[in-house]
Structures are given as structure tokens and as C-alpha cells.
Amino acid sequence: MEYALELRGLRKNYHHFTLDNVSLSLPKGCIMGFIGENGAGKSTTIKAMVGLISKDGGEIRLLGQDPTLDRSVMEQVGLVLDSGFFPPEMNAKQLGVSMARIYQRWDPEEFRRFLERFQIAWEKKIKEYSRGMVMKLSLAVALSHGAKLLLLDEATSGLDPIVRDDILDILYDFIQDEEHSVFLSSHITADLEKIADYIAFIHRGKLLMVGEKDDLLSSYGLLHCTRDQLEELAPDTVAGYRTSEFGVTALVKRYRMPGDYPVENASLDDILLYCVKGKKLASQEGF
């Protein structure tokens, strides 16, 4: 299998945070959702991938090349960050002129088509854009230089559902060519449930799980039970649980459950919530 993105033991140390041996692979032609709570290490991982921060260890391969050694691979990598990074004094037309001299495969017609599709005025200054428009402009730039891999960091956060849906449609169209891939970090798990093929889940700098989304969703389920029933389960069956006045709700691994327990489907939100905030059974160590 060919991979668009490979991380092997990626490490980055800060005083109060460590990105700890993150390893994952994104096959070509797929979308991977990268989820985790705020401060989990999503942005740090993406910044390390594209060279905005230096890594303290590990390997990064984007489209088979190490971007820290060979910047030419970035010709084929599109990046959209949560905050805009284009000069507010410029307009889309001027930006297009600059981009044509930065990216060898810049396609001005493609850029124009995206701007029309996004209803972005050619002459309007970026400082007059809404957040949604800034995100769309970033996406238009990322898609207009022949990128084969898109990296998006919280690109849909803070946007209304219609704009978010637009962006998801574009990403979906983008990967129809099986050479194209998307790595999308978000804490809006509903978006990822719609379009992601793979999910990577990071918590406090550590990758807790990586896998196909459908496998993940079918592997985990929610069990509503009493405290006594919960105690009867093997500790490694329960990923996390929460108690309420009505009893206990636990995120469980379906394939480890005895057959007579009714287990409901869990969403990515549930998996994220119970893994991060759920209590662990007494003999559980980590997750």
C-alpha cells in the first residue's frame, strides 16, 4: 500500500507538553480525521509535519519524502490552518499573482474557479473577509497548485454548518482521484464521521488509537448498566465510564463483551468523551 503521509515515532518536547512517539500512516486516496481535545497535540503534529516547528525525534514522510530535508515536496502539499495566514492588505487577485511565483504548478484558472465557487470577490481585501471566507480562500490556494495531500488544521472550526458542509463536499470531491489524500484535524467529530476513512485519536500528546473509522465505530459501543454489572466486566473491556443518578454508561469494546449485554452504537464524540473524561475501572492502567 502506498502512503500519502507517514509518521514514525514523532516527538516534540515543550516544558509542559510532549508529543510522544506519534506514529500513523495515511494511505493514498483516503481522508484521515485527527481528533482530540484542545491542547491534545493536533496542531503541534501538523506543524511538525510541514516544518513550522522542529521535531525532537522520529520520521516524517509526506508523499514519500522527508519535508525537513527536501522542501520541493511542499509543492504537492496544501495547508490550511485554523488562523488565516495571508496578508490582510492583499486581495485574492494579488495573492494569485504571488502564488504563481511561489508554486511551480500554480493554476490561475483553477484558482479563479474556486473563488467563483466560493463567491469570493476578486478585488476585496482579505481583512474584509469573514472567517469562513478566509478558510475558503486558504482552501482555494491549497487546491490550486496541484496538491496531492491536503493538511487541514481545525479548518472547519467556528464555521456555520452550511460553510462546513461546503468544505466537506470539496474535500470529498478532492479525494475522488485516488492519488489525493486529506489529513484533517478537528474537534468537530460530526464532520469527520461524514467524510473520514480513517481516524487517529490523540490525547495529551499520545496517540490513543488509529484505524479505519468504520472499524472504530463498530469496535466500540455504549453500555447502560448498574455499577455491579460494570464490575463484572473484564477491566480491559471498558474504555471509560460515567456515572449518573440513573446508573452507569460505559464505552466498551464490543468484541470483548459477553453476548447478553445490550450495547448501543457509539459516535466518535462518545469515544472521544469517554476516553478523555470517563473514569477507568480500578485495575485499568491507561487505555
Partner: peptide
């Protein structure tokens, strides 16, 4: 200074330009 404050450095340092 402008490049620092407007975030352009993030873009350009993630581009093919060294």
C-alpha cells in the same frame, strides 16, 4: 515585522521556499 504579525511566516515556511 509585518510577516511576523499577519501570520505570513506560517504560510511561507510551509511552502516549497526555503
Amino acid at each position: 515585522n509585518y510577516d511576523k504579525t499577519c501570520g505570513w511566516n506560517k504560510f511561507v515556511c510551509a511552502s516549497p521556499i526555503s
